[in-house]
Amino acid sequence: MQDILVVDDEPLIRLGLKKIIDNARAGFQVRGEAGNGNEGLEKLAAHRFHTVITDIKMPGMNGVEFVKSIFSRYPGVRVIVLSGYAEFEFVRETMKYGAVDYLLKPVDNQDLLDLLSAIGRKPGAAGSEPDASPASPPLPAPKNDPISRAKAYIAEHYRHNISLNEIAGIVHLNAIYFSQLFKKETGENFTGYLIRCRIEQAQRLLEDPHNRIAEISLEVGYEDPNYFSRIFKRITGLSPQEYRAQRGGRNA
């Protein structure tokens, strides 16, 4: 059985999470609750929990400091962070300190249960005692940064007609917030980033003289070769033909 500690300053949220988890009867159960980070540490000192689910914004000790304290004192404990759209910068901080994943509010019941199940399948989770010694290294956090996931998705699907709204949905973020976060993290907006990915791939393809420009245009997501050529020149300062000529290619 995976013992879970729920930490949130809203009693109704704690009650809701407890009902979702306990009613699932899936090998995990809420064994403790706390209203802030300080109370959470007291609970952890009194009972060996396998997993902590904690809010980011709480009075007293906030979620970031709470997670940092957990992994300095109880590095074997898995931590799931709950956050709103506007709090993702804090989520990033908790990931640095070892939080294994995060869920956006309002929490989707199935997402929560799936995540707990995944954690329970990891070695040292349910049925084992977390190591209370600070000498044990914290578990590494998975690469679940939404911007990293978005960039990976673009790299795989840049040739298709993908939109900001589509990718925002894939990474479970509000489209407006995702757009702002993407610009902040990458230094360019979504459309500019997508175009650059396409043109960089086109440059690689143009270096092979056997690839015709019309075919390259389709390969990188542009049905109209003339439009592709205009975009290519706007980004590189050269037409595709000029770019290829500079590299000794011939075919158009």
Rank of each mutant, 00 (worst) to 15 (best):
residue 34 A to G: 09
residue 34 A to V: 06
residue 35 G to E: 13
residue 39 E to Y: 04
residue 44 L to G: 01
residue 47 H to M: 05
residue 48 R to H: 08
residue 48 R to G: 02
residue 55 D to T: 08
residue 59 P to M: 06
residue 60 G to N: 10
residue 60 G to C: 10
residue 63 G to F: 01
residue 65 E to G: 10
residue 68 K to T: 06
residue 68 K to S: 07
residue 71 F to W: 02
residue 77 V to N: 00
residue 78 R to I: 04
residue 80 I to Q: 00
residue 82 L to F: 11
residue 82 L to D: 00
residue 84 G to E: 10
residue 85 Y to V: 09
residue 85 Y to I: 10
residue 86 A to G: 14
residue 90 F to S: 12
residue 93 E to P: 00
residue 93 E to Y: 01
residue 97 Y to C: 02
residue 98 G to L: 03
residue 101 D to M: 12
residue 103 L to W: 03
residue 103 L to Q: 02
residue 106 P to D: 03
residue 112 L to G: 08
residue 121 R to C: 15
residue 125 A to H: 02
residue 129 E to G: 07
residue 130 P to I: 05
residue 133 S to V: 05
residue 134 P to F: 03
residue 134 P to L: 08
residue 135 A to V: 13
residue 136 S to M: 12
residue 136 S to F: 08
residue 139 L to E: 03
residue 141 A to P: 12
residue 141 A to Y: 00
residue 142 P to F: 04
residue 143 K to C: 14
residue 144 N to L: 15
residue 144 N to A: 13
residue 145 D to N: 15
residue 146 P to C: 11
residue 146 P to H: 08
residue 146 P to T: 12
residue 148 S to E: 15
residue 153 Y to G: 08
residue 159 R to C: 07
residue 160 H to Y: 13
residue 161 N to T: 11
residue 161 N to D: 14
residue 165 N to H: 11
residue 165 N to R: 14
residue 165 N to F: 05
residue 169 G to Q: 11
